[in-house]
Amino acid sequence: MEEKEKYLNPYIGGFLLGTVLFVAFFIASEGVGISGAFARITAQLIYLVDPFYTKNNAYTVHYLYTGNALANWLVVETFGVFLGGYLSAALAGRIKQRVEKAEGYPVASRLLFAFLGGALVAFATRLTRGCTSGQALDGISGFSVGAWIFMFSVFAGGMLASVFFRKQWKDV
């Protein structure tokens, strides 16, 4: 996997990330987050098909208080994450269509696990009130004990399940 430009030192990357996070605290009065945006996008998609579902569902109903589930800071910020990721990769010459997996591992299996993994992660974020951004980064930076409970559980779950997905990441 030849890349035109090397990645940033992870500690410098972390320093910049932490500073961006603090700017979010300082201005928006909340940290960065992604899963909340996906929850809202999903609620809005369902609303387009079946408005009654979104209005009558005990979970999604509060997303409609502002009239549109997408009128929210997290949604705008997540759109920015997409743009920022594209910008960084484009400047470094790293935009390329590909599927990340071990060599020789079937593409269909990889994409099936990507889909199922995404679904499981999303489901979990509703229980945990956020993901590795909105719960772990924001919570730990806000001195929350719960965010550490979340993060230790993530690593426990990932390491326990890792044996089943070894082939997928064999030479990665």
Binding site: F113, A114, F115, L116, G117, G118, A119, L120, V121, F123, A124, T125, L127, T128, C131, F150, S153, V154, F155, A156, G157, G158, M159, L160, A161, S162, F164, F165
Partner: peptide, 9 residues
């Protein structure tokens, strides 16, 4: 669950 999904996906 999140961790399982993460190593899977």
């Amino acid at each position: 669950l999140f961790g399982i999904g993460m190593v899977m996906g």
